[in-house]
Write a protein that binds this DNA or RNA. Structure first.
Lengths: 141, 141
DNA sequence: ATAAAATTTAGAGTATGCTCTAAGTCAATA
DNA sequence: TATTGACTTAGAGCATACTCTAAATTTTAT
């Protein structure tokens, strides 16, 4: 089963422009062409796209993603290297989740701060509420 | 207490170039200048920088961060708007953490897949292990 | 057969966030 | 006093990831 570029784009909420751009930079090395030059996306190409989207969403640069697929194309002797890329990516994601959780706490404090400020009717809560100030310092310093 | 641009940069692991850039785009509206034109970062300015870093790390664009500080400068009548910005940002962060956790699972599957492939001594594990294929489909489709 | 819709290419343009350079000014020290 | 180092500005350049255009070709529908 083959898909046109717009069918493939639709499946991943991308534009055809984006898919052609990915092809151009070598991110889709297995996508074929029909006799008249139209791109034909196979099921395997769609699996690649799913992986591209996954890696993109976790912050991997397109250059790195390309490196991954180029390695995959080389065959079994690159398994170790590809596995190491995924292990590295795993720890980057874990670190990112950790960082987001910490920053979420700061944002939640800000919301609480604004609620207090609204109740008190003034925004200069820091001076009035030493306890809040202490909490602020703990979070932001 | 005041800090030079390089002292401020050091505290936040930024370059002086970056701080001047932030100043230029209006992200540091309260930073003053000495009589001879040198920037003077107050403790409050450093607090702003801490908030800028927090918002940056959670993916907010500099334009939005600027909007936040411009609102803060306007005073109490913008508290509601600023609080809404933080509430919106909170849900974006929560969504982002969710997405990262899902993608982490996919990466972890890939690692497991490579380990299996290594044990079996071939990379075409999908055909040999229908169970793994099913797991792959569940994660990637 | 023909018109409309989809595809192709090369290449230009855009948005974001820096990053660096050049030329000059200012402050501290030997 | 001279030099070193930090600072200033304007503005150019860079990396990433698209995004769009134009002109030509192909496919699909009537």
């Amino acid at each position: 089963m083959f898909y046109s570029i717009s069918q493939a784009a639709k499946k991943f909420n991308l534009t055809t422009h984006t898919l052609r751009y990915y092809d151009k930079i070598g991110l889709l090395p297995t996508v074929g062409k029909s006799s008249s030059g139209l791109r034909r996306f196979s099921d395997n190409d769609l699996n690649c796209l799913a992986m591209i989207e996954c890696l993109k969403e976790t912050g991997l640069k397109l250059k790195e993603i390309k490196k991954y697929f180029v390695l995959a194309l080389k065959g079994d002797e690159t398994i170790d290297e590809r596995m190491q890329m995924m292990i590295d990516q795993k720890s980057r994601i874990e670190q990112e989740i950790k960082s987001l959780k910490q920053n979420l706490k700061k944002i939640e404090f800000k919301i609480k701060y604004y609620q207090t400020a609204k109740n008190v009717g003034e925004s200069n809560v820091y001076n009035e509420y030493p306890q809040m100030l202490a909490e602020h310092d703990k979070l932001f310093k």
